[in-house]
């Protein structure tokens, strides 16, 4: 039980993150081709201003706040205000500067382009 190790873990769990809303994990689709990785996440009810996409040290974090405004007496309520939150590991080959995100119809679409060096390259064979 190394004390140093334990300290690092404590930092990582970030207990001080005080959440107002229950946190839920959005469902995602992940696709990849030679040029980029695509990530689609369902975040119904989240506005553009409330979405955060953060790439740091090989970690991609997406968060979205849904603040549901309601009025009147609820006869039934199956969903409410939540915080969508999910973390992914992304390869270092992602070109962070070119990451681009769009939010449409409650679906967040992230394009994570691969850096030039990481793309597969066809080697031409010269006749000697």
């Amino acid at each position: 039980m190394d004390e140093k190790k334990e300290l690092v873990k404590k930092e990582e769990t970030k207990l001080e993150r005080n959440r107002q809303f229950p946190t839920v994990t959005p469902v995602v689709d992940i696709y990849e081709n030679e040029d980029e990785i695509l990530l689609h996440a369902d975040m119904p009810g989240v506005t553009k201003e409330e979405v955060r996409v953060n790439v740091d040290n090989g970690k991609l974090t997406i968060t979205g706040l849904r603040n549901l405004e309601t009025s009147g007496a609820a006869n039934w309520e199956e969903f409410g205000s939540v915080e969508f939150y999910r973390t992914f590991s992304v390869p270092q080959t992602i070109d962070v500067a070119k990451v681009n995100a769009e939010l449409k119809e409650g679906v967040l679409r992230l394009h994570l382009p691969k850096s030039e060096a990481a793309k597969p390259r066809q080697i031409e064979i010269h006749e000697g």
């Binding site: 009025s71 009147g72 609820a74 039934w76 409410g80 409650g106």
Partner: peptide, 17 residues
């Protein structure tokens, strides 16, 4: 979700995408 607002009812549904 279904809300009763006196003169009207309001239904909200999650339909992402």
């Amino acid at each position: 979700n279904l809300y009763d607002r006196g003169n009207q009812l309001e239904i909200k549904a999650e339909v992402p995408g």
